[in-house]
Structures are given as C-alpha cells and as structure tokens.
C-alpha cells in the first residue's frame, strides 16, 4: 500500500484520535500552565497562561520535591524488586506445577483484590507497630508489596502459562533442576511481563498517599505523593508551587515510561485475560 493511500485510509481515524488526545491532555497541559503562575494569577485565570511567567515556583518546589523523589525511589525500588521476584515465583509455581489445593489457594489470593484498602489501614498499622517496624523502610515497603503481589501473581501466572512446555521439557532432559529452569528459561522469556508489572507497580507506589502518610514518622522521609501537598494546606494553598511540584513529581515516571513503553506493551501482548 502506498503512503498516500495509507493516509487516505487513516485520516478519519487519526482525526478521531487527535480529538481524544486533546481532551485527554487537558489536565496535563493545565498542570504545566498553572505551575508558572502565582496565586493572584491563578485566581484571575484558571485555564489559560498568564504573564509574567513565574519559573521560580520550580525553585521553591524543588528542595522538598528533590528530597521526596529520592525518598520515593528508596521505597519504590525495593517494592518493585520484591514484587517482581515474589510475584514471579508465585506465578510460576501456579502456572507450572499441579499440587493439591492449587486452585483454591490461587482463588483465595486473587480474592484479596476485593478488600477495600481503607478498611485495612488501622489493622495493618497495628501489625507494623507490633513488629516494631514503625518508621522503617520495610514498614513502608512490605505492606506495599503485599498489596501488589496479588495482581502480580495473577499476571505472571497468566504469562507463564503461555510459554510452550517443550522449552522446559528439553532443558529438563538435559538435567537442569527446577530452580535453574526458572532462572535460565522462564525469567528471560518473561522480561516483557515483568516490565508490565514493574510499570504498574511504580505507578501504584509513586501515587499512594494514605499508607506512607500513616507509616512514616520522619517528615524528611516522606515520598512525592505527599511531598506534592507540601504547599497545600488547610489554611492556605500556594497553587503555583503545588502544580510545579506535580510536574516535578511526574517527570521521573514520564522518563521511565518513554524508555520502557515498548517492553511494557510486549508484556501485555501475551494476552492478559481471565
């Protein structure tokens, strides 16, 4: 098909996509525009840019946000690694082995998705305190991992089940043990699925507010989800700095997304289904 005929075929679709994209990006553009305003400008004009621009909002937001971004990484990276490892192991076990109680165990794990998060805040905090884990890294990370491995196990099981059994059988005949089958064959094949899980995991841990607020005692250690609210208060809000904080907070994710978008999609292409 020639280029021009492809264009002729595609333009109505492109137009429709363009309209959808414009509406989708309104909040995004709005955040950026307002991050350059001071309060007086924001009160006068909600949607459109105003002059003079106030890039110093970023300078004011940066000390708190720079620290918060580092904090967020310090929570999100361990969460990510543990979620991938634990979901991978569990998903693999469910996909590859048949053992008594397999289905009921799987269903009882999947059923945990149904728990309203807010219900468990106080009981979960009590567990953390009982373990003497208040204000520790594991006190933030492990509860997060426990939330994320539920869907993670489901996703990894679905993915591992699409791998042809012949791969494994050949290696088994070569004398590989179960663990090396997992490491040498399953994991390399599952990299796309892992990256899907990783992105979803990052989105979750980057944006969760309630748990870090409750579990972290040292205000110097708060993550970006709470850091963005530093300039929003019950008595007054510095809107421009708050929007600048939102922009700064989303930059690391955008960069990560841009570089991993392809892999992320490949992970889904095995066909996530139920």
């Amino acid at each position: 098909m020639s280029k021009s005929s492809a264009w002729r075929r595609d333009w109505p679709l492109m137009l429709a996509l363009l309209i959808l994209a414009i509406i989708t990006y309104v909040p995004f553009v709005f955040t950026v525009i307002n991050s350059f305003k001071i309060n007086a400008q924001f009160f006068q004009e909600f949607w459109l840019p105003t002059t003079p621009l106030h890039p110093e909002n970023y300078a004011r937001a940066w000390p708190a946000m720079g620290r918060a971004i580092l904090n967020s990484f310090s929570y999100s990276i361990p969460t990510l690694i543990l979620t991938l490892v634990i979901s991978g192991l569990a998903g693999y076990a469910f996909a590859r082995y048949r053992f008594p109680g397999r289905n009921s165990l799987f269903i009882s794990i999947l059923a945990l998705i149904m728990i309203p998060g807010i219900l468990l805040v106080i009981p979960m905090f009590s567990v953390i305190i009982a373990l003497d884990w208040d204000d520790t890294l594991q006190g933030v990370v492990l509860p997060w991992v426990s939330v994320e491995i539920v869907f993670g196990t489901f996703l990894m099981r679905t993915f591992f089940e699409t791998l042809p059994r012949e791969y494994f059988e050949a290696a088994r005949l070569d004398g590989a043990n179960e663990f090396s089958l997992l490491i040498r064959i399953a994991v390399p094949l599952a990299i796309p699925a892992f990256s899907t899980l990783a992105i979803l995991n990052l989105l979750f841990s980057w944006n969760d507010i309630i748990w870090p607020l409750v579990a972290i005692f040292d205000s110097e250690r708060l993550p970006v989800s709470i850091g963005v609210l530093s300039f929003a208060g019950a008595w007054s809000t510095d809107y421009g700095v708050t929007f600048a904080s939102y922009v700064i907070a989303s930059l690391p994710l955008i960069i990560i997304f841009a570089f991993t978008s392809r892999r992320f999609m490949d992970g889904l292409s095995g066909g996530l289904s139920i």
């Binding site: 569990a90 076990a93 469910f94 468990l120 009981p123 009590s126 492990l142 426990s146």
Partner: peptide, 27 residues
C-alpha cells in the same frame, strides 16, 4: 517434589498472611 512449588510460594504467602489476611481477619 512437592516442596518445590511450596518453596516458590512461601515468600508470597508469608507477606499476604502478615499484611493482608491477618489485618483482614482483624477487620
């Protein structure tokens, strides 16, 4: 051997037990 899948599931089950099942039962 049966312990292989159990071994693979133990980390997940431990975490779920501590931070999902016990709090859920408590609730």
């Amino acid at each position: 051997p049966i312990y292989i899948p159990i071994l693979f599931l133990i980390p997940a089950l431990l975490l779920l037990l501590s931070f999902r099942y016990i709090p859920a039962v408590s609730a």
